[in-house]
């Protein structure tokens, strides 16, 4: 993906998502690269779509931000017209349709759509062509995903709470930050449960920095 108009096309990323008993936990690194150049050290890769819905992005930033914008607008519209929050599967399907309709010139992004609805907590993964898979346990995208998946395979247990999952997703992302040169700098964590969407503050994240 490097070399397509040279700039801003980043793929080097680590994002992870874990399905929990009471919600979902998401984490990403914050490094934004163009080729071997670190263009930004504090890039936002977890995006809130609605109070119960979020998306992590890896790939071309412009493409991903456009999909996020469309999803945000449609989630708000859905809530207004149907008087209930948009189901996670519906949001994922909408994004998948956007990706599939650009089949011949794909939107270069890998995404995790995660959230909580009446059916419970869900994590879906999306590829650039619009394939959708519902992940039952956890998922990871980006160049650091092999490292992160190793940690998740080892550390995941059934019926984790979001509070218990936070150290796991942080550990997965931090391991990938160490062994994947395209991931690094810092990390972001978000939790979605019945109470809604919440990002960990700098103080909350600080206790994991040393590990």
């Amino acid at each position: 993906m490097q070399g397509l108009y040279g700039a801003g096309i980043h793929k080097g990323t680590t994002t992870v998502g874990v399905v929990c008993k009471d919600g979902v936990a998401l984490a990403t690194d914050t490094r934004v690269t163009t080729g071997y150049f670190i263009a930004h050290k504090k890039g936002k890769k977890i995006h809130k779509i609605d109070d119960h819905l979020a998306m992590t992005i890896a790939g071309a930033v412009a493409d991903a931000q456009n999909v996020v914008d469309i999803l945000k607008a449609n989630a708000a519209l859905f809530k207004l017209t149907h008087k209930r929050p948009m189901p996670v599967a519906s949001a994922t399907r909408l994004a998948a349709n956007l990706l599939f309709y650009n089949r011949y010139i794909p939107l270069l992004l890998q995404a995790i759509v995660a959230g909580v609805d009446t059916e419970g907590a869900h994590i879906f993964s999306l590829d650039p062509f619009g394939s959708v898979t519902e992940e039952e346990k956890f998922f990871s995208t980006g160049s650091g995903s092999p490292v992160a998946l190793g940690i998740l395979e080892d550390g995941f247990k059934e019926n984790l709470t979001t509070e218990e999952a936070v150290p796991l997703v942080v550990r997965a992302v931090k391991a990938a930050m160490k062994r994947d040169a395209a991931s690094g700098d810092s990390f972001d964590v978000a939790i979605i449960d019945k109470a809604g969407y919440r990002e960990l503050t700098e103080e909350e994240k600080a206790k994991y920095v040393a590990t």
Binding site: Y5, G8, I9, A39, V61, A62
Partner: peptide
């Protein structure tokens, strides 16, 4: 900072 495709990334300092 914006790239040719229109990504938006806020920062404190930047070079292009």
């Amino acid at each position: 900072v914006l790239d040719p495709l229109g990504s938006l990334i806020p920062d404190k300092y930047a070079c292009v």
